[in-house]
Deep mutational scan, measured.
Amino acid sequence: SPEEIKAKALDLLNKKLHRANKFGQDQADIDSLQRQINRVEKFGVDLNSKLAEELGLV
């Protein structure tokens, strides 16, 4: 269901964000992850996106 997909995506992105902060990645990478999280919260996951591929939806 779209809600489950959204939850999985947010979980994955939050893990990536945590790792980025923990290991001191570029601020641009961290900002990009934050924008992705905001986009998923607002609009859900686009099944044509790279994120959908990472989640194994495509």
Rank of each mutant, 00 (worst) to 15 (best):
I5L: 10
R35K: 12
Q25P: 05
A52V: 03
G56I: 03
S49G: 07
N21Q: 15
R19Q: 14
A9G: 04
Q36K: 07
E53F: 13
V45K: 00
N38A: 14
G56L: 05
K50W: 11
L13M: 02
S1L: 08
I30G: 02
H18G: 07
A20D: 03
N38M: 13
L57C: 04
V40F: 02
K22V: 11
R35I: 11
A20H: 04
L13Q: 00
S32M: 14
V45T: 01
L33A: 01
E53N: 07
A7N: 09
L57T: 03
L17P: 01
R19T: 11
F23M: 13
K8F: 06
V45W: 02
K6W: 04
V58T: 14
L51T: 02
K16F: 05
A28N: 10
I30A: 05
F23A: 12
H18L: 13
K15Q: 12
K50C: 10
N14H: 15
V45D: 01
D26G: 10
L13F: 00
G24L: 06
V58E: 08
K16H: 04
E4Y: 12
Q36N: 03
A9C: 07
N14W: 15
F43A: 03
P2S: 13
A28Q: 13
K6T: 07
L57W: 07
L51G: 01
L10K: 03
L12C: 08
L51I: 08
L12R: 05
S32D: 13
N21T: 14
D31Y: 04
L47M: 12
L57D: 02
R35M: 14
V58A: 09
I5N: 09
Q27E: 05
K15R: 13
Q36W: 09
D29S: 14
A52S: 05
K16C: 10
E4W: 15
D26V: 10
R39G: 07
G56Q: 06
K8E: 04
E3W: 06
L57A: 04
D29V: 15
I30L: 07
A28P: 04
K6I: 08
E53Y: 12
L55P: 00
A9R: 01
S49F: 02
L13G: 00
S32H: 12
K22Y: 09
A7V: 10
G44Y: 01
K42I: 10
I30V: 10
K42G: 04
E53G: 07
K50E: 12
K50Q: 11
A28I: 10
L57S: 03
A9Q: 01
R19Y: 15
P2E: 11
L10G: 00
D29K: 15
L33E: 01
R19K: 10
H18E: 15
D46K: 07
G24Y: 05
Q34F: 07
E53M: 14
A28C: 13
L55F: 02
D31T: 07
R19S: 11
L12H: 08
Q34S: 05
I5S: 05
G24C: 10
R35T: 11
Q36S: 05
D46F: 06
L17H: 01
G24E: 05
F43C: 10
E41Y: 09
V45Q: 01
D11T: 05
R39E: 15
H18R: 13
A20V: 05
F43L: 07
V58C: 07
E54A: 05
L51H: 02
L57H: 04
A9N: 00
K15S: 09
D11C: 14
G56H: 05
E53C: 10
K8T: 06
D11S: 09
G24T: 07
L17V: 04
Q34V: 15
I37N: 00
V40P: 00
V45Y: 02
D29G: 09
A52Y: 08
Q27S: 07
Q34L: 15
L33Q: 01
E4I: 08
D26H: 09
D26W: 06
L10S: 00
E41F: 07
E3G: 08
K16A: 08
S32A: 15
F43Y: 12
D26T: 11
P2C: 12
I5F: 10
V58G: 08
D31R: 08
K8A: 12
S49D: 05
D11A: 14
I37W: 03
